[in-house]
Computed example of a mutant assay.
Amino acid sequence: MKKCLRCNKQATHHITEIKNGKTVALHLCDQCVGEYLNTVDVGGIPDDLEDPLSIGPIGSIASDSPVESTSEACPKCGMTYKLFRSQGRLGCPHDYQHFHDELIPLLESIHHGETQHVGKIPPKVSEESRKQYELIRLKNELKLAIEEEAYELAAELRDQIQSLNEESSSVEQD
């Protein structure tokens, strides 16, 4: 879901403005769309406003609104942030670091404030892959338990890991 450009609430109105041959999409909540429409002539962005995405609260221009990135192209693949936004795909793994500052707000707006995927395992994953995922998760929890000196929990996790390993090795022997 898109967030409102003015207040970061959920955007419920999507306005496309065309100014000087450029198309600009504005995403606004119920309250801000009314304020926006009252500050401009219907069907037009104010002539003195160069960047419609920077429209902030009434009578001001917000500096923290999403604006087009001014970062340079990735030195590895040549991808620009503008090109990424138009294609929806990054060019190489280095782009995640190169465009980090631009990607974090984008991910937060898409994933309701989260930047890390916490979704489900795909339904058609093999049982072996599920066990591997569980094994990795348990090992990470074990490491954390040891760091926090939670030795009883660590012992339980160790036993679960051993049990999973034994299941895997007995399946391989069959």
Rank of each mutant, 00 (worst) to 15 (best):
E72N: 13
D41F: 00
K143T: 08
E68T: 13
K124I: 10
Q160Y: 07
S69D: 05
I15C: 01
S169G: 08
S170G: 04
E17T: 06
E35N: 11
T80Q: 06
V33I: 10
I61S: 09
D95F: 03
V171C: 07
Q160I: 08
N20E: 12
L83H: 12
H111P: 00
H117Q: 11
I58N: 09
V171N: 15
L106P: 00
V42D: 06
D95T: 09
E147H: 01
L83V: 15
R158I: 05
D41M: 02
H13A: 09
T115A: 03
L37I: 04
I18V: 14
D174E: 15
M79R: 05
Y133P: 01
E141H: 08
H13I: 06
Q160A: 14
T39A: 10
S65W: 02
D159I: 10
S69F: 04
Y36M: 03
H98A: 03
K120P: 03
L157F: 05
M1V: 13
T12I: 06
I146C: 01
L144Q: 11
K120V: 12
R6T: 11
L164F: 09
D64N: 13
E152W: 10
H13V: 09
H100N: 14
T80C: 07
F99Q: 01
A25Y: 06
P122K: 12
Q173D: 14
E128D: 11
S129T: 14
D95H: 07
K120I: 12
E35G: 09
P46L: 05
V42L: 06
I61V: 15
H111V: 03
E17I: 09
Y133T: 14
L144E: 15
I45Y: 00
L90N: 03
L26Y: 00
N20A: 13
T80N: 07
Q173F: 09
E147C: 00
L135G: 01
A11N: 02
Q132L: 13
C77E: 08
K19N: 03
Q173G: 07
C7H: 03
R6H: 08
P66S: 06
H14I: 09
I55H: 01
E149L: 03
I136G: 05
K124D: 12
P57V: 13
S65C: 12
H112M: 04
E167K: 14
H112C: 02
I18R: 05
P66L: 07
T39R: 15
G56Q: 03
K139R: 15
D41H: 04
A73H: 05
Q160V: 08
E156Q: 13
S63C: 09
Y81E: 02
H13L: 06
N8K: 14
C32P: 00
D48C: 06
C32Q: 00
D30G: 08
D64L: 12
L107C: 01
C32S: 02
S69H: 04
R6D: 02
K3S: 08
E172A: 13
D47L: 06
K76P: 01
G113F: 02
E108C: 02
D174T: 10
R158F: 05
K22E: 13
V33D: 00
P57F: 11
I18L: 08
V42F: 05
S86C: 10
P52L: 03
T80G: 07
L5W: 01
R137T: 10
Y81T: 02
P75T: 12
N38C: 07
R85V: 14
